[in-house]
Design a binder for these strands. Structure first.
Length: 212
DNA sequence: TTATAGATTGCCT
DNA sequence: GGCAATCTATAAT
């Protein structure tokens, strides 16, 4: 696992470019000496005050203030009374924009992820239902937060570029072969904008056959 | 002060 | 494929 997080400059540019560039990077949750890691395989861009679907659309509020802050910080919100979602904010302080992390390919710490998700993941289960089970760990924005124990209370506003942070994003050199662009999922406003990015063919992206 | 919709998920038929 | 669960930000009263 790479020890050096992506630098702040990585996030200090157009939100769509960051959303695409985050594909293939590694999300790292550190719990003492143990690590949970997963490769980012699906993202969505949420633009500034011009994007009706973005939480930043109404301007700065208590809830969304992280999106207007300096780049490279986690924006975590609670939705539908049940789920947390993880974003990283982009662009310089004062400009809104963030990327929603929608799906990961789990890499290390799978048993802990399963425990966090309330799933049984023994060897027998892996042998018989591996693809189904593994997809239940970190496919979907709410699921990956539960698997990584990401909550608003614990992680909102956290600097993901700080190596001492327990939530960081790093580059291990992996580059996606091909990237698909589609409309965003689960929104009603600005639903036609092509702002969802995923690694073509990766089985851990959400949706059927990597589409929707 | 009350009502409503929401960047989701899991269980039901 | 349909729908309930369950909290909260924001709009409407």
């Amino acid at each position: 696992v790479p020890a050096v997080p992506l630098p702040r400059e990585f996030y200090d540019r157009d939100t769509r470019r960051v959303a695409r560039a985050l594909l293939g990077k590694i999300l790292i949750r550190r719990e003492g000496r143990r690590h949970l890691t997963g490769r980012i395989v699906e993202t969505e861009a949420y633009l500034g005050t011009d994007d009706a679907a973005a939480h930043s659309a109404p301007g700065i509020t208590a809830r969304n203030r992280v999106i207007f802050g300096p780049p490279g910080h986690a924006y975590v919100y609670f939705i539908y009374g049940n789920h947390y979602c993880l974003n990283v904010n982009c662009l310089p302080e004062g400009q809104a924009g963030c990327v929603l992390i929608r799906a990961l390919e789990p890499l290390t710490g799978l048993e802990q992820m399963a425990r966090n998700r309330g799933l049984a993941l023994d060897h027998k289960a892996v042998e018989t239902h591996a693809p189904r089970l593994l997809r239940q760990l970190t496919t979907g924005p709410g699921r990956l937060c539960q698997a990584f124990a990401i909550t608003r209370e614990r992680d909102n506003g956290k600097d993901v570029t700080n190596a001492r942070s327990d939530l960081t994003i790093a580059d291990d050199g992996f580059r996606p072969r091909r990237v698909l662009t589609t409309p965003r999922i689960g929104i009603t406003k600005s639903a036609d904008e092509m702002l969802r990015y995923l690694i073509e063919g990766n089985p851990f992206a959400s949706g059927v056959m990597n589409k929707r």
